[in-house]
Nucleic acid binder design. Sequence first.
RNA 1: GCCCUCGUGGUGAAAUUGGUAGACACAACGGACUUAAAAUCCGUGCCUUUUUGGAGUGCCAGUUCGAGUCUGGCCGAGGGCACCA
Length: 844
Amino acid sequence: MDRYNFKITEEKWQKLWEEKKVFSTKVDKNKKKFYCLEMFPYPSGKIHMGHVRNYTIGDVLARYKTLQGYNVLHPMGWDSFGMPAENAARQNNLDPKTWTESNIKTMRSQLKKLGLSIDWDKEISTCSEDYYKHQQNFFLDLYDKGLVYRKENYVNWDPVDETVLANEQVVDGKGWRSGATVERKKLNQWFFNISKFSEDLLQGLDALENWPNKVKIMQKNWIGKSFGCEVEFKIESEKPIESIKCYTTRPDTLFGFSFLALSVDHPLAKYYEEDKEFQKFTEECSKTGTTEESIASAEKLGFKTDLVAINPLDKNMKVPVYFANFVLMDYGLGAVFGCPAHDQRDLDFAKKYNLKITPVVKPEKDKDFEINNEAYTGEGYLYNSNFLDGLKVPSESIIKTIELLEKNNLGTKKTNYRLKDWGISRQRYWGCPIPMAYDENDQPIKIPRDMLPVKLPEIEKLSNTGNPLDSEDSWKFFNLDGKKYRRETDTLDTFVDSSWYFLRFCSPHNLDRGFTQEEIDYWMPVDQYIGGVEHAILHLLYSRFFMQALSFQNEKFKLKEPFDGLFTQGMVCHETYKDKDNKWLSPEEISTNDGENYFKKIDTTEKITVGPIESMSKSKKNAVDPENIINNYGADSVRLFILSDSPPEKDVQWSDQGMVASYKFLQKLWLLNSKILEKIETDKSSFTNETLSKFTNQLIYKITQNLEKFHYNVIIANLHEMYNFLIKEIEKPMKTEILVENYKKILIAMIPFIPHFANECLTKINKNPIQWPVILKGELIEESINFVIQINGKKRALLKVKNNISEEDLLKEIQENKDTEELIKKQKIVKTIFVSNRLINIII
RNA sequence: GCCCUCGUGGUGAAAUUGGUAGACACAACGGACUUAAAAUCCGUGCCUUUUUGGAGUGCCAGUUCGAGUCUGGCCGAGGGCACCA
């Protein structure tokens, strides 16, 4: 029996797809479009299993939609600006461009070996001038609309990468890439005014029905809308300070007011800058780390001022004003009113400085209510609150108090958002140059559009510290109209690059514009976007913002949401191994005989500790190289494995046995194929085969349903069932046409999963046009059904009866059948529950 | 602390959305073939003495003729946010 030679077959089909440009698409208004996009990769060197999974999932969908007759856009590109290139260039003494381009070459050929249905003619790379030229244009567009501004601000400074990070890029107080503890630094930075669209970005989430709820909730929390009011507190002081405004979501607790606290960065701090004690205090505050634990456990510290704040609702209520370490300048107004009874932080602070604690909210039922070590934040009624007494908390109290404050000009209703503007300046060489310059007075000017792109200068050797562009004087300074200018040397955050690349795919080669309206009107939005959940906030929120920004003051551009459907796939995981010195070992370095005890290959006496199953990573050495696997087993087998067993949205564990099993399954399918071909040659009988037709139709139905729901793992199981059924069924004599017709449908249904194999088999039986098989609804109905007979809710028997049997007929059958009649013999039937074509429950 | 998701065999998981729990596969064990091994094929899998029996989807309760699925409470795991006023 011949074995399936994946090497020859896969090469043959990949060559054919490439030469005939099978996946090349263009705008065709007569056809329904489908834009299938997977998050484009960073060209880090080689592809990893995560890529294999991501692009296989996308490819299944793209091929399925193509077979259904859609005009499918399925492109690929490179997120090719970024720090790894710069770091690698320094280490290896070459320039980032060379490094990046060689990586792209490697990874492109690796991806092609996976047999993806990608339109490679539309390939783009964000580090090419053709790409970032348009990005600079968009930057100027946004600048003209007032959506870009420059300000001096405290920034998250990564001391290892020597660059600024966005808030989104700081994880647990550490840089998301370097892992270094982030410092606070004051710098002049460019910002995108993303907070202007807080409400639109929040509202827009509701319409995204095909997004995972989880991602929408994460974005919602990140935007962090809160409702409250700004309250003005009159101040008694010798200094020229008349009042301080605070933002609060709980104005109803104003009668529990016992102090007012300011951030050390509050404008009023200027009156205390000379004060030695205050200087000491601010120094103390800056020592507090930014990590999770240090924030949670940090002691509440305050610096008492000589100011006295007056409760706007009670002129006789006068409280001290503090600077406090727990008040943030960049949320609200950098000032809070303290109500210790009903806010934990305020309570901690009040206890430390012996401030008054007046409870003003009482839970309905608790008569002996008092505040000890825990602030009460629950529901109840107001008391100790003069004219507010008795209001229901929170349903009445907050609104009523705000109304009252507004009426007396003491405060204003206010909605607040946690989302802050997006700092986009990076002190890096390998990024898109910001198309701005400064005149002799340090005033920013735009680079004229006809001078775009501002190209990155070619630098032979990158400086070891700081931003290389800073020391590139011949690039940095230029003359225009007889005046001397200094270029902006910061480059754009690479998340800007990925905020619009999906638009570029629609017009990838247009030199004049980033995209044409006609092309994005046809292709956009992306119908299905597929990628890792780690981009739930960063990339996905930025891309949504970019659409808002492009459509702002622009009648033609109406696209508000770039991604109609979103699917977040799980990670590829593997066991981890450590030797006796606690060093990570790769799977290739170890061996086992029984699957339980592992040893070092080079020293078989040394036992290995098997660690937890974690997502594949270089640092833990638990990654499996896709290239080896593809060479050993073929792309179809890898695709099969990566799709089996685990649902795409969940993590999958790499297993060598699983990989081998998928390979074997493909061999079995090849065997089946050979048998079928032989049968077509030899079987001259004229029997029809209804069972086969019904089975096939049922199978196509199941596969179609599961495709729509991304239940790809179930489809692989369906294919196993298909094999188990067919290998027996073809033993029966049957008409050739019946077999061919059904087998062809099955093969077509396999194309999305194992495209090389399925196409190869198809050419051997039929050359007719290939399209997704039509499901015959009528055929789905079985003639006879295994009817479940329940007595008092318990399954007692299965009865084979004809389809659509009525309750009366069924009961008759039960009485006539010798196995079932005993169950109800001589019993009085109280009640029956009849579910058509499924079960009957007889209560006796 | 707040928010979200998930708990089904030794393992990864299915379950027509309230209707036969464990499809399909991995691993294990037993058998067939073989001089032998590999490969391949067949079978087994909780409890009870056989069965056309019983229990059983993290735990406890509830709704229902019927619950893995719905409701409430608890326990456990994972993820997100976090001095956000």
